[in-house]
Amino acid sequence: MTTGSGAGARVNCVVDAEGRIVLELPVPAAATRPHLLLRLRPRNGEPVAARRVLALEAVADGPSRAVLEPLPALEEGRWDAFLLCDPDDDAPVRLRSGLRDLRALVDGHLRDRPSPVAVRIPYATKEGYLAVRTWLRPVHVEAGRIDVGDRSTTVTARLHGATLQDGAVVRLRMRGSSGPGRDVRPVPDGDRRGFAFTVDHADLAAGTPAEGGVWDVFVHPGADEPPVRVARLLDDVADRKASFVHPAARAASVALRAYYTLDNDLSVRVAAAS
């Protein structure tokens, strides 16, 4: 059992184009068999279950190094980083975030991804600790450009792990409601992976209750295909809700604004105009 050795250690990390994450940190001399622990943060009081333990290898004249390979993929969620002085350590030390080289992720949306689509983005928590944000989805729809006009909003997107088939539809669902959604036909590119769709502001406003609501955006790649959430995941931004703010549009007495949720999924909020 450790009692704080390694406390305050900072982890530098580099991500390459294949998704490999190289993590480097100084290891205290007392650590006999040091390892780096990634532990899935529990949701809603659930017990901690998933973890990934990586060996820390000594490097001549430099910090020790651990490598998180692309496979096997990590379960979707947020993984916190800890130092273990040996694999049986029952008091892991939380690691702080150092430099993060994420340049290989910036243009990640330009590369087509096979199914399942696995995404991993290292980031610093509000307290300054290192964590890795992960998504793991059989099929993914990556949101691209969002153009907000006076009467409609047009979104470009791209499918990863699937292609658009006959009967494909973009469906907006009112969150928390079992009522009918709003269907929009996608306009596909030549390879039937890229596409665009346009949402009419007045139509969406007419389907929203007087108290307002949120419409979540999905794509059905084919007539009998399950829905796929539209999101923005394939770059270096782990949390985009507060940093990507789109302009609001007016329709009658309401304002509509496209935004990204805490999970980086695309939604449209409709509320009374101020």
Rank of each mutant, 00 (worst) to 15 (best):
V199I: 15
R229D: 06
D89K: 11
V11C: 03
P180Y: 05
V219Q: 14
D239L: 14
L172P: 04
V270A: 11
N12L: 00
P226G: 12
V59N: 12
R111Y: 10
S64K: 06
T163Y: 01
F218H: 12
G181T: 08
L233K: 00
V48W: 11
R182E: 07
S274E: 14
L204R: 00
L234M: 11
L110T: 15
G213F: 10
D166Q: 12
R232I: 03
V106I: 11
V53C: 06
K241T: 15
Q165R: 15
L110W: 04
A17L: 06
M174Y: 04
R158V: 13
L23A: 12
V53P: 07
E18V: 12
P114I: 08
V22I: 10
E24Q: 09
A168S: 15
V11F: 08
L74M: 14
R145C: 06
S243Q: 14
V187D: 10
T3I: 04
S178E: 10
P26Y: 01
A168P: 04
T2H: 03
V270P: 10
D88K: 07
Y123H: 08
V93L: 07
D89P: 06
P87F: 02
H109N: 10
V106F: 08
T208G: 00
W215K: 05
H201T: 05
A104T: 00
D189E: 15
L83I: 03
F197A: 06
L172K: 03
V245W: 08
V228P: 11
R52E: 06
E76I: 02
R78E: 15
A273C: 14
T163R: 14
S5A: 09
L36G: 01
P138R: 07
A272P: 11
L102G: 04
L130S: 04
